[in-house]
Amino acid sequence: MKHPLTEREIRAIVNGREVRARVPVRKSLVDWLREDQGLTGSHVGCEHGVCGACSVVLDGAVVRGCLTLAVQADGARIETIEGATESGRIGRLQEAFYQRAALQCGFCTPGMLLVAAELLARNPNPSRDEIREALSGNLCRCTGYHAIVDAVEAAKSGSR
């Protein structure tokens, strides 16, 4: 990829499955996942990196899907809310979000879940303040956050 082009072939592992595609280089990762891969669980909320609705997992770390180009997924492993759901990896968090009513409109929820899962992987027993800080890059306009913090606490390992 030495020469500048406006379209590129990419190969990526998306939710465990290899995908080959031709992408316009200006297309964002989240637009590509939503429009070309049908993975509409990642949402577009601001397109300037503030709201976190577009969060996806790129090579094991949550990133903003609007601040990464699809072409940059070449050779990478991508996991979206759909993949995380199917693998059961975030099942505990999802159950806690459901039980605790930690969502209203649900638009922020996939991003919140993926970020919360990364927090718990790094820190299995976070305090409420640590949870709030970890989630502070994800906008929720409905819940006021309290219930989301409760749900993440409830999903901590060891808690019942």
Partner: peptide, 21 residues
């Protein structure tokens, strides 16, 4: 009671208007 309708939303299976093609 939790909202039955949110099971879909936590699974990323919401269908918002931008998801319609």
């Amino acid at each position: 009671l939790p909202r039955a309708g949110t099971r879909r939303l936590v699974a990323g299976r919401g269908r918002y208007v931008d998801d319609i093609v």
